[in-house]
Design a protein around this nucleic acid. Sequence first.
DNA 1: CTGTTTTTATCTACTAGTAGGTAGGCTGTC
DNA 2: GACAGCCTACCTACTAGTAGATAAAAACAG
Lengths: 194, 194
Amino acid sequence: MAHSSTTADDILTCARSLIVAGGYDSFSYADIAAVVGIRKASIHHHFPAKADLVRTLVARYREEAQAGIAALERNVPDPVGQLDAYTGYWQACIANESAPFCVCALLATQIPVLPPEVALEVRAHFRALSAWLASVLERGARQGSLRLDGTARAEAETFLATVHGAMLSARAYGDAGMFGLIVQPLMARLVISR
Amino acid sequence: MAHSSTTADDILTCARSLIVAGGYDSFSYADIAAVVGIRKASIHHHFPAKADLVRTLVARYREEAQAGIAALERNVPDPVGQLDAYTGYWQACIANESAPFCVCALLATQIPVLPPEVALEVRAHFRALSAWLASVLERGARQGSLRLDGTARAEAETFLATVHGAMLSARAYGDAGMFGLIVQPLMARLVISR
DNA sequence: CTGTTTTTATCTACTAGTAGGTAGGCTGTC
DNA sequence: GACAGCCTACCTACTAGTAGATAAAAACAG
């Protein structure tokens, strides 16, 4: 990645935060131009169409997520710690309002009206994330630190859904604490008391 | 309510299904006009501004939800049956694609960009729904049919969040069965085997 | 019961503003 | 001189919303 210009990055970063606020249709090239400090037409130079911009943005988001997971796999050996790190990451994002919603979770709600190439990326994120969670739960169950009621696959989907629902409730109530209120019991139920 | 005209109802019904597909910004008066078979201007006669239309729509949605809950309280005596009816309702809506998402859950994701009066209604729905769920869980725990790990309040929020997350996952994967996969274990965990 | 007035619902035609997107020119750097 | 990056200027389509006309129904007066 011989990235020369930072403008494309600025555009992507700005677009990401605008999407997190309201989804695909709630922002425009004009909004981005105003924040980044360039003209609308210059955004089209970097991303010909809106679908290109958002697809790229989601692809990058997925790369970052994969990198984060890889770092977790390297630095946090135990499954419980990995789950804690994952939920803790979002708890912090919501608490300090830096990025109070998962880009893919938000876009997923709008899948019926999303450009197909964007929907594809969003779906891929869900698959990757739930596959990783399933592997973590599986490992935790094998080594006796986690208790699963059903299959690792099913528990992973429930875990992911609850975390997403917790984001939604935190936003609905306008109360960052709601995320922890929901996610803490979720963890407590899975972790075998040491 | 000596309301004769069905046009306003048609507009609301149409707008609801458009919102369920993609949220507040993803539909226009022109979209509704095309479906209902009137002109844009006629919609403005019934609902001066878009915010009025959506606020009314959400208010009506809330009334229907309250009516549904009231009917449940009348016809289904036991808490387990009530929870089953609630999740079963959504399972059916998602399976037959009649209304595969909760209007308020979808709008809640967009709260930062919603007109304040709409956001207020959405928030009120979350509060009412979680209060009802808490009362159901409370009753179930008292009469020994449900097992709660934490407070009824906290369990209700977790329940609601998981159901919303399950809707989201079903949409993300494009797989209606995902809802049941997530919600069934949720129920199984709460219900004390008879 | 009849004629008048008001209300309701709709229309055509329009506004100002914004959407995403395009054409072509200027400037600085390998 | 090729090209990246950004610009001005523009386009077409669409946005929510308005103005004013029309027709019919409802309310009401004598």
